[in-house]
Simulated scan of single mutants.
Amino acid sequence: MKVRPFEEIVACHGATVLRVCRAVVGPVDAEDAWSETFLSALRAYPELPEDANVEAWLVTIAHRRALDLGRARSRRAVPTDSVPERCDARADPAARDPDLWAALARLPDKQRHAVAYHHIAGLPFTEIAVILGNSPEAARRAAADGIKALRSYYREDESA
């Protein structure tokens, strides 16, 4: 029997999961990835050990769902008739700087994911390594390289 109701888990970690989904698949598919994450989590929640790191567990699920959606998106045509709605800038720091999403999109997948999981979700590199299937050192390096690349992209954009 879980101590915390699942609704409380969603309320506590929902915003973090949404930011991770946005960073991995972009703002258009982020809500779908978020929904899929919590549907999967709801099914698995009764079996989750009491001492589990719930946030890391949810980010792992979000990573998998986002990758699934990204693969599905790459196989289908994307309509461009409408512009996606803007998110609330107070809820998401990156919404205050739309260039951040463009800069994140330019990063290689491993770097983008490592930056999102560490700097947006706040996960330690040991947990990021499990999600990405590499070592903590490789996860740390990918995040550092991603941040370095983001800094150079911003310098390029400012000089243009």
Rank of each mutant, 00 (worst) to 15 (best):
P93L: 01
E31G: 06
A62G: 13
R76Y: 01
Q111W: 01
A143I: 03
V17D: 04
T37Y: 13
P5C: 15
W34F: 05
V115T: 00
W34D: 03
N53T: 13
Y117I: 01
R96Y: 00
V130L: 15
A143C: 14
A143P: 04
E158D: 08
I120S: 00
E7V: 12
S82I: 04
H119S: 13
V20C: 04
V20D: 01
V28S: 10
A144V: 11
E8G: 06
Q111Y: 00
T16L: 12
D51T: 14
I128E: 08
V54E: 04
I61H: 03
I61C: 10
D99C: 03
I128M: 11
A44Q: 12
D81K: 07
G26T: 02
D99R: 08
P84T: 02
R22N: 02
V130E: 14
E156M: 14
P5H: 14
E158H: 02
L104D: 00
A91P: 01
M1N: 08
A33F: 06
G133E: 07
R151L: 14
A77E: 13
E47K: 14
W34R: 03
G26H: 06
E55V: 05
H13T: 03
D81P: 02
A89Y: 00
A15C: 08
V24R: 08
L107I: 06
R71L: 15
A95C: 14
G122N: 03
S159E: 11
F38N: 11
S82N: 01
E137G: 13
